[in-house]
């Protein structure tokens, strides 16, 4: 199973418990999370299904570069971490 964790900064907006899901690609793993937590999707992906501009995804510490297709292969025991930048004042 793939473990999917989210930045704690999201917790003030939406519940983001660490999930254990099946999925062979980043897209499949994230879709599996969103299927049980649909409100979370729009915080991570834009309307067209691409990663939001300042959101980054790491698979076992490696940054995902295919930000629109999310086709990177995910090993079955991988850990996916979703984070973002914070800014403003």
């Amino acid at each position: 199973m793939v473990k999917v964790r989210f930045t704690s900064n999201l917790e003030r907006h939406v519940k983001t418990p660490t999930a254990e899901v099946a999925g062979g690609t980043v897209r499949e793993a994230l879709d599996a999370v969103f299927s049980s937590n649909p409100m979370l999707r729009s915080y991570i992906l834009d309307d067209q299904g691409a990663l939001r501009r300042h959101v980054m995804v790491f698979v076992d510490g490696e940054q995902v570069l295919d930000r629109s297709g999310l086709a990177d292969v995910v090993p079955s025991d991988a850990e996916i971490f979703v984070m973002q930048a914070l800014s403003g004042g």
Partner: peptide, 8 residues
């Protein structure tokens, strides 16, 4: 408008 996290 949460910026990085989009419009809610």
């Amino acid at each position: 408008n949460l910026g990085h996290f989009g419009v809610k």
